[in-house]
Design a protein around this nucleic acid. Sequence first.
DNA 1: TTACCGTGAATGAGCGTTCACTTTGACTGT
DNA 2: ACAGTCAAAGTGAACGCTCATTCACGGTAA
Lengths: 209, 209
Amino acid sequence: MPRITQERRDANRAAIVAAARRCFSRQGFHQTSMPDIAREAGVSAGASYRYFAGKEDIILEIAGETFAMMFAPLHQVAGAASVADLLAATADPISGERDRDAVGELLRCTVQIWGELLTNESMRERAAAGFEQARADLADALRRGQSAGTVAAEVDPDQAARVLMALLHGLILQRVAFGLDDTAAFARELQVLVSQAGVLTPGGSELKD
Amino acid sequence: MPRITQERRDANRAAIVAAARRCFSRQGFHQTSMPDIAREAGVSAGASYRYFAGKEDIILEIAGETFAMMFAPLHQVAGAASVADLLAATADPISGERDRDAVGELLRCTVQIWGELLTNESMRERAAAGFEQARADLADALRRGQSAGTVAAEVDPDQAARVLMALLHGLILQRVAFGLDDTAAFARELQVLVSQAGVLTPGGSELKD
DNA sequence: TTACCGTGAATGAGCGTTCACTTTGACTGT
DNA sequence: ACAGTCAAAGTGAACGCTCATTCACGGTAA
């Protein structure tokens, strides 16, 4: 039948998503109009609606991309040797050694999505699922580290994984909002903090126990 | 002449800001209309414009509140004993022991503001200034800790302060987006990570007590 | 050939903002 | 004390604009 080939259809769809990513990254979700996206993609305003139900649908697609970028790599941190190594692995896709442009755009979208999570129920559910999966992956890696003797037994894998996720998210915000893109320095300092102990005296540890 | 008293004027203004805070927290910046805010404040649509130049102006006011909440407390962390204590102090206003509602609302606004930073130049400048100030305050506290011998000399105060800010921001996101509001558990785990060293093996100089 | 694809002007809803008008309350003169 | 005064404050319907979405039509590829 006289459609276009699936291949071409996929390519068109991908082009629209890529255009949306650029627009969202540059202007933000709410300052980007559907005609903006269409123009950036080189198609007419109506064409996008052959591929997406609406703007919301495109945002969800982008959100899926950001989740994949952030969480998928964590699923295969098999043999992380230490807590600091775990962060390095976690932060790897963020560091932007590869695909610098696409990664940067997606990170700018990520921060905007955090804001969307507050009002978009289905998006929050998806994000929460991804977060819990990532946290579980990190916790598993930490448990393996404890078995191997490279991670202290006192570490609570689930709680430590939560701390690592906080570090990852904070790192993203710093890069995107404040231009602090030296991920390596961040990881290095974290290594110092966790491996050499920032605390020498138990004096100020009323938080313990 | 026949105005209202300055006191009353201030109160009205504060009521509008408070209404905006509630609306923004509940519906998000872009899903909240000016009439929404006015209705929540119990005034008519036009009244808000006697107090604010426009919606943008109200958002800026809220942004100022969030910056004050997050950064002002850090300016007086005089005698933090350790890295983990520093985070506890940093996270204190966030923990929501006091003003639970107002703090929660402001934190939800905070996450949305992160998204605004990407496209609002003046807001990013203000946020960056607050961030650098907070980072400097934390770095100073760390230096004092080093002088007092409660913080390891290997710690780079500026970099470590950056890590602490990432933890704070990540903690906020977890609370707001994923409902993880157990700040105490977070601080406790961080204490374990920094004080007992998550890493036992790789070339770790052992400066522990 | 023909069923789908792309087009872009049209549509309608929603929003920020304004403004002609009414109400209010601080000041004034007694 | 107090009533009158009047500029500012409050009102809410209306305006103009933007934007997401639609659709009737010409184009195109299987």
